[in-house]
Simulated assay, not measured.
Amino acid sequence: MKKLFKVALIAGCMILLMGNFAKAQTKIGHIAFDQVVGLLPELATVKTQLAAYQKTWSDQLGTLNTEYQNKLNDYQSKQATMTDAVKSLKQAELTDLGKRFQEQQSNAQQQVDAKTNELSKPLIDKVRAAVTAVAKEKGYAYVLNSTQTDLLVSPDADDLMPAVKAKLGLK
């Protein structure tokens, strides 16, 4: 009786282990995420809005640069006739204007980056939702971004691009 119990216990454990092994097999897919975002028709609107936003910053920087160049040219042309006190004052003014230009340039880049993130977020969220839905429908546990993954060795995976494009209504 004890032998029969042991055999049944071992058989039950083996069945349990085999079930867990089968469960451990997960499906992996991949997609070129940036490529899908690039196919969205809304991207043209985002690019137009970003170009207009960048132009406002570019115009402001251009005005500041013109002011700096004018003052620099004026300083250089009159430098020989200036007193030491006036030279020192003009040099300080040019240095201050140069610093303001650099700060404005840095601020402009930060603002443009923030605006890019703000305008791109809905597109990224839309594609991410479609990828998530397709992965769930098809039973994928993991989906890798094939444009940003540096895996040297990886198991075979399925390309989800056609299914996600269909989900988003893209050709």
Rank of each mutant, 00 (worst) to 15 (best):
K2N: 14
K2W: 08
F5M: 11
F5V: 13
F5G: 00
V7M: 12
C13M: 14
L16E: 02
M18S: 15
F21C: 09
A22T: 04
K23I: 02
T26V: 15
K27D: 03
I31E: 00
D34T: 10
Q35L: 10
V36E: 01
L39S: 10
L39M: 15
P41R: 08
P41V: 07
L43H: 00
T45Y: 02
V46D: 02
K47M: 09
A51L: 10
A52E: 14
A52P: 03
Y53I: 03
Q54F: 01
Q54D: 06
Q54L: 02
K55H: 07
L61R: 01
L61E: 02
T63A: 15
T66M: 08
K71Q: 08
L72E: 00
N73M: 05
N73V: 05
D74C: 01
A80M: 10
T81R: 09
A85L: 09
K90Q: 14
K90Y: 11
Q91D: 08
Q91E: 14
A92I: 05
E93V: 09
E93I: 10
E93S: 15
D96Q: 15
L97S: 05
K99C: 01
F101K: 14
E103G: 06
Q104L: 07
S106M: 13
N107E: 14
A108N: 01
V112S: 03
K115P: 06
K115Y: 05
K121G: 04
K121N: 11
I124Y: 06
D125G: 09
K136L: 00
K138Y: 03
G139S: 04
Y140P: 00
L144N: 04
N145S: 07
N145E: 07
T147I: 03
Q148V: 06
Q148N: 14
L152H: 07
D158N: 11
D159W: 01
L160W: 00
L160P: 00
L160T: 00
M161K: 01
A166E: 07
K167F: 03
L168D: 05
L168Q: 10
